[in-house]
Design a protein around this nucleic acid. Structure first.
Lengths: 225, 225
DNA sequence: ATAATGCTTCGACTAATATCGAAATATGAA
DNA sequence: TTCATATTTCGATATTAGTCGAAGCATTAT
């Protein structure tokens, strides 16, 4: 039984609380410095440096040097999707860190999942896109239809340049709280960027939580009804 | 950042090589005794007992006492699906335990994924079912059509009694080797059972690998063309 | 230059835990 | 009963790995 990939390595990397905290912080999508990540993890910078080098070596995170700062992000969306998936099983099994509080409610409502929108509102958008046949599921792949292209055009999202990217245009990601799919891929990224750009919502500091303005949520709901 | 579920706990459980080996062995779907799992993990029974109690306590595996033996299986298909997912990321990141050998090729071809068929042939069946519209993807859920019901009826699989179960009839599971979906859920279980029953294939001892007979593979391919 | 900030390396300490031998418990066989 | 097998518990050991202080390197600010 020594066939196949080694999940123990991946498990042990995530199995340390400090590293898990770092990865969760990076799930918010923003690039963070080593010092910031140390604070998130609740350890000194020396300890953090050791953890970060392990995560980097395993290609779960990628560094980007900028002056004397070193910014980290998750290496790619596969890592983000997997972590979301892991959150799903952990939640289902009842591995919770804190008693459910008001923050938890906000988190379930709307949050950043690495580079796209997750939570109830993310699922809502996804469902709506499928309902109106802006997206179609074909053989496990997600495809953008002509009317979908028009829909995003009207939103001010040009889907043309995305075609060229190696990264899939649209993709489903399983939501840990709703246990339903939401939109990922470069289209998912473009959508959440547009939401922030329009001022419909903003990131909560040091959190994955996305807080919609009253007006923003109204517009969002009308758009994805 | 102490919001949400605790993935570190889940990670550390899988992070130990002995436990990871045990879980991988259980991915073959067969119930195994504590002694067998100890052998799979390469540790003594005392050590295995300790690991098993941890996995059981975390509800990743479930025991079933039978005389003086204690049989373990994965607790539910969510655990199996998650492990398959984890294998996917581990493989993509290049966390392999052994150099790719002939066994690896067989594993990619056809294998058991806890309680259903995975690998190239599993993906092939899934694609075919969608192509012929025996299955439909509706809003992220998989639905069996009337013609699909007839298809399985002809195969000798009665889908009626499955309706009553709480477990979903059909469900997609992401394949680690093909990085495509294959059929899970109770229908997936029924299908692989039928394959074994028909003598089209059999499990390889102490492995997830499923070996098809020449004749069996021909019939399988014709069925899911 | 000199100082300050961000990060890494080194070394020592500590805590956690995987490990197994020995013994205990439980079930089944003779 | 007596013996054999399966599993668990206890206790001791050893290894691992997370931790941080101190020092070093690199970059930026003054």
């Amino acid at each position: 039984m020594k066939e196949g990939p080694d999940i123990a390595l991946l498990g042990s990397l995530i199995g340390d609380p400090a590293r898990a905290n770092m990865l969760m912080a990076l799930m918010a999508g923003k690039a963070l410095t080593a010092t910031e990540l140390a604070a998130e993890a609740g350890v000194t910078v020396q300890t953090a440096s050791s953890h970060l080098s392990k995560l980097e070596h395993a290609q779960l995170i990628s560094p980007r040097k900028q002056g004397r700062h070193k910014y980290f992000t998750l290496s790619n969306e596969d890592v983000g999707d997997f972590l979301e998936n892991m959150l799903g099983l952990a939640a289902k099994q009842g591995y919770m860190r804190t008693r459910t509080g008001p923050k938890d409610e906000d988190l379930r409502r709307a949050r950043v999942c690495y580079d796209h929108l997750a939570g109830e509102l993310g699922v809502k958008a996804y469902d709506s896109l499928l309902k109106h046949r802006y997206l179609l599921e074909v053989n496990g792949d997600l495809r953008l239809t002509a009317s979908g292209k028009a829909f995003f055009d009207k939103l001010g999202i040009d889907t043309m340049p995305m075609k060229a990217l190696r990264r899939p245009l649209c993709k489903a990601c399983l939501d840990w709280s709703a246990r339903r799919s939401h939109l990922a891929g470069s289209l998912g990224t473009a959508l959440i960027d547009k939401i922030f750009e329009n001022g419909w919502a903003k990131r909560r500091e040091n959190s994955r939580i996305v807080t919609f303005t009253r007006e923003g949520e109204k517009k969002f709901s009308r758009l994805f009804s």
